[in-house]
Amino acid sequence: MTDTNSIGLHEASASQLAERLNVLLANYQIFYMNVRGYHWNVKGHDFFQLHTKFEEFYTDLLMKVDEVAERILTLGHRPVHAYSDYFRIASIEEDKDVHDGEACVRGVLRGYQQLIELQREILSLASDADDEGTAAQVGDYIREQEKTVWMLNAYLG
């Protein structure tokens, strides 16, 4: 009997990675809904610019939700899929009734910062487990999101 899964990773490592990826998935789902809310509810003189930008962000986040869930499945585990589970394990919280443009941008910035922090943890775990697939995936996310954080900070001045 072997202690590796179907893609050759040690099962204990794959299990630990799947657990952290489920936490990442939960955070992505809640952040996605926050950004969707900013898109719907933003008001102010930058409405047109922000409304379009928030749509770009939530479209990308939705794609990443699917990719993270599929990576969990690739590791041989199940992605969580109930909002009650998301609220229980996520660190990103719901951001309700936000409509001021600057407050919305600050909410997006906080969300990306929290994702980056969690993804760095997962990157370290994946590297330790020789899981190039997960490492490459979250590494790409980190690179993209660090640039977004820089741009959001530039927008805020």
Rank of each mutant, 00 (worst) to 15 (best):
I30T: 00
K64F: 06
N22L: 10
V35W: 00
T59P: 03
L17D: 12
G37V: 00
H45P: 05
L62Q: 13
L50D: 08
L25A: 10
E56H: 10
R36G: 02
V35C: 01
Q29H: 14
Q49I: 10
E19I: 09
H39D: 02
F54H: 03
T52C: 01
T59A: 14
Y32M: 04
G37R: 00
H45T: 11
Y28L: 15
D60G: 14
E55Y: 06
L17T: 10
F48K: 07
L50A: 08
K53T: 12
V65D: 11
V65M: 15
Q49E: 14
V23L: 10
F57D: 11
E19C: 07
T52E: 14
N41H: 13
G44V: 08
E19D: 15
E56W: 01
L24A: 15
L25Q: 09
T52L: 11
K64Q: 15
V23N: 08
A26S: 14
H51F: 10
V35L: 04
Q49M: 09
R36N: 03
V42M: 04
Y32T: 06
G44C: 08
D60R: 12
K53N: 06
V23C: 07
F48I: 10
D46E: 15
F57N: 08
D60N: 14
H45L: 10
Y58L: 01
L50C: 03
L17I: 13
L24N: 09
L62W: 09
Y38F: 15
H45Q: 09
N27K: 03
M63D: 15
F57Q: 09
Y38S: 05
L21R: 12
M63T: 14
A26W: 05
E19L: 13
L50M: 11
V65C: 15
H39F: 06
H45N: 08
A26R: 08
L62C: 03
K53G: 03
N41R: 08
G37H: 05
H51M: 05
F31T: 02
F57I: 13
L21P: 12
L61Q: 11
N34S: 02
Y32S: 03
V65S: 04
L50N: 12
E55A: 12
V42N: 02
F54Y: 14
